[in-house]
Write a protein that binds this DNA or RNA. Structure first.
Length: 473
RNA sequence: GUCCCCAUCGUCUAGCCUGGCCUAGGACGCCGGCCUUUCAAGCCGGCAACACGGGUUCAAAUCCCGUUGGGGACGCCA
């Protein structure tokens, strides 16, 4: 069997959308599973809307989610000659003709037809004119078959039948010499020997327009697979008003790319009841047989859960690595550099089951980087009171009497002390927690002490005592 | 308007192709409990769906038809 060749062909008219990422992902998984080639092609034939920044954004997004390509990125604007050659070949064979209708007139006729409740199709008025050398502006139209049917055996939708009589003659070469989408995709998919065209199902109705072009050009047909759309909570096509749709926005919000990939692949594909997949499992298990035919609603809550899962179950070093840029952004770059990898991993392990994003993690991790800690006003007022000061002092003295830190020993000391004083654990734990972290919520007290180390623990305790004594009852 | 696609808990889905094992399973979220020094995490339990109507069949979530609903396409955009 010949090699599988698939492509992802975004148009650079904005950021990389999560729907685009999912399309790319399914292509990529299929290519990797079949040891085929994944090709990246930039469809930039609309020079008025394509931008260089968008191309960079696409590459950046692909890189972030780890979708590497084997060929490309090709740019259609570098391949103009190819499209023109193919278009003229069709003209010479009588399978395309010049159309001298003005764009405004076409627009007006379309409006008129729509108003009458008719199909807004091109009426074919230049079809029989036999124009050889148009003088003014002219576009080249494909002479589409008007009889019979075009049948597509879609990998996901099954057999889909279209009546050719319903299709009009689409423009393949604009009057400015640029090819249109439906033509350039065909030429590229053919020349790049794409075996499987996997794309969003918004392209399903483009397929019966493209198939006859493949045939007219004499190229073999690829297989087609049309992926269902991603919708917002209101079941409308996912757009900005549903929240973030740019893949990079999720990076900025503190999502892990592995969580994004796992979530996105499960949106429309399943493997029994399994929710969590490693990348290799996805490559191994992916199949079009289990791609859903219906659209899926994007669920931010489940994505968040997925991210929390990856935060909790990834190797600590991986989490530290992902967290680093966020720490720098939070002004903790120097402290990050000064910290040991082992300590950072220990810290991350301590806080990670309490966080769902890297942004949240920064907040949880922040109190442990510096010698002093920011005290939250409400927490201080509530727990560091004059009433608790004596107990804090006594406890601190006991800790000072212990020559070195040992989590087990300090915990034992603490508990014995609480018992002696006939206090409840929480009565003393909360004030100590506030003294050590500045907050009322933190990881376990003794884990916190371990992270801080003996000196810093004692230091913060003493600071806490000062606060407690100074605080008005 | 025309054509095309789709239809299982609120959401993602298993099951559907190859009817019976489905008094429909899992996950997210939600609710309750357990654990507990805080916050989480974890564990246990609960609520919750085969869109509707016909047919085929001994038997239909599963097959067929229709209705309704949702989505997409109809550009010298991609």
């Amino acid at each position: 069997m010949s090699q599988v060749r698939v492509r992802f062909a975004p148009s650079p008219t904005g950021f990389l959308h999560i729907g685009g990422v999912r399309t790319a992902l399914f292509n990529w998984l299929f290519a990797r599973q079949r040891k085929g080639a994944f090709i990246l092609r930039i469809e930039d034939t609309d020079q008025s809307r394509s931008t260089e920044e968008s191309i960079q954004a696409i590459l950046e997004g692909m890189k972030w989610v780890g979708l590497d390509w084997d060929e490309g990125p090709y740019r259609q604007t570098d391949r103009m000659e190819l499209y023109r050659q193919h278009a003229f070949k069709l003209f010479e064979r009588g399978q395309a003709y010049w159309c001298v209708c003005k764009a405004e007139d076409l627009e007006a006729r379309r409006k008129e037809a729509e108003a009458k409740g008719l199909s807004p199709r091109y009426d074919g008025r230049c079809r029989g004119l036999g124009i050889q050398n148009p003088t003014g502006e002219a576009a080249l139209r494909f002479r589409a078959p008007q009889e019979g049917q075009t049948v597509i055996e879609d990998l996901i939708k099954g057999q889909v039948v279209f009546d050719n009589a319903l299709l009009d003659d689409l423009i393949i070469l604009r009057s400015n010499g640029y090819p249109t989408y439906n033509f350039s995709v065909v030429v590229d998919d053919a020349l790049m020997e794409i075996t499987h065209v996997i794309r969003g199902d918004d392209h399903l109705t483009n397929t019966p327009r493209q198939v006859p072009i493949f045939q007219a050009l004499g190229y073999p047909l690829p297989r087609f697979g049309h992926l269902p759309m991603i919708l917002g909570a209101d079941k409308a096509r996912l757009s900005k008003r549903h929240g973030a749709t740019s893949i990079m926005a999720y990076k900025e919000m503190g999502y892990l790319p592995e969580a994004m990939v796992n979530y996105l692949v499960r949106l429309g594909w399943s493997h029994g009841d399994q929710e969590i997949f490693t990348r290799n499992e996805l490559i191994e298990k992916f199949s079009f047989d289990h791609v859903q035919a219906s659209a899926a609603v994007f669920n931010p809550d489940k994505l968040l859960w997925m991210n929390a899962h990856y935060l909790q179950h990834s190797p600590p070093g991986r989490v530290v690595q992902a967290l680093a840029p966020f720490l720098e952004q939070a002004g903790l770059g120097n402290e990050l550099k000064a910290a040991s990898p082992a300590w950072l991993e220990q810290l991350v392990v301590l806080v990670r089951e309490r966080t769902k994003t890297l942004i949240e993690m920064v907040h949880w991790v922040a109190p442990y980087f510096r010698y002093d800690v920011a005290m939250e006003e409400d927490a201080t007022k509530k727990f560091l009171t004059p009433a608790i000061a004596p107990a804090l002092i006594e406890l601190t003295v006991r800790f000072e009497g212990l020559p070195q830190f040992s989590k087990a020993l300090w915990e034992e000391t603490f508990k014995k002390f609480v018992e002696e004083k006939n206090m409840k654990m929480g009565q003393l734990a909360q004030p100590v927690r506030v003294a050590l972290t500045g907050r009322t919520a933190s990881p376990g007290l003794f884990e916190v002490m371990e992270i801080l180390g003996r000196e810093r623990t004692l230091y913060r305790l003493r600071k806490g005592i000062e606060r407690a004594q100074g605080g008005q009852a």
